[in-house]
């Protein structure tokens, strides 16, 4: 369960990137966070995985106050999550395989298991044939799929994806969100930040509308 209580975030006075956000996302929910550019979607996601600290408010994840976790222990929180970033954040000096293997390496998975799981995950995103390529040689869409593979490879409890289909053609975008949906069916909480209305209309169980950092509407269960 992800709970946000009166969360405010300010980068620069007098503008508030988030204003008094209160939110409860139950384990296993599938959520779309939507709104125009600059509405606070990315800030909200970054605060949940604690890349950013809120100016005010509290965040509780699975009963643990995320703001009380010291920096040296933040890995515990991050290992529960799979993250997909708007800018992909891939390691360009490493192959696709190595990029996807990183979350497994940090938890000490053995090599054989890493090979098996990375290959299976790359098959899911249809990139297994480019396993030994370097990300710089891939298209934007392919890089995005590498980022998605990295986020799902260790079966996290929560997936946070910021515009995961932003660079994909509609067909592939549907395929990718279907993949998230499939993962969600196995009990993983999925939160996707997107402004793709077509996708949201098609897949959105729960939709959160943001505008100028405020929640202006909710749809769903």
């Amino acid at each position: 369960m992800i709970e946000l209580f009166h969360v405010w975030k300010q980068y620069q006075k007098p503008f508030w990137a988030l204003s008094d956000v209160n939110l409860q996302i139950r384990a296993g929910d599938f959520y779309f966070v939507t709104g125009p550019s600059g509405s606070g979607k990315t800030t909200l996601l970054k605060i949940i995985f604690r890349e950013l600290l809120p100016t005010e408010g509290q965040i509780v994840i699975d009963g643990v106050n995320a703001l009380k976790i010291p920096d040296s222990r933040i890995w515990k929180l991050r290992r529960q999550m799979g993250l997909v970033f708007q800018d992909f954040r891939l390691m360009f000096q490493r192959s696709v395989f190595e990029n996807v293997a990183v979350p497994l390496q940090v938890i000490g998975t053995n090599r054989k298991e890493i090979r098996r799981r990375v290959f299976a995950t790359l098959q899911k995103v249809n990139l297994h044939h480019k396993m030994w390529e370097f990300p710089g040689r891939l298209s934007y869409g392919e890089q995005q799929r590498v980022a998605i593979a990295r986020a799902i490879v260790n079966n996290p409890e929560i997936i946070l994806a910021d515009e995961p289909t932003g660079n994909l053609d509609p067909e592939l975008a549907f395929e990718i969100v279907s993949l998230f949906k499939e993962i969600n069916k196995q009990g993983t909480t999925v939160i996707i930040g997107s402004h793709d209305r077509e996708l949201i209309r098609h897949f959105g169980d729960n939709i959160l509308f943001l505008q100028k950092g405020k929640i202006v509407g909710k749809e769903g269960r």
Partner: peptide, 13 residues
């Protein structure tokens, strides 16, 4: 960049 990614995927210091 690499260190940042490692931290985001849950690598310990």
């Amino acid at each position: 960049n690499e260190i940042e990614i490692l931290r985001l995927v849950g690598a310990t210091n």
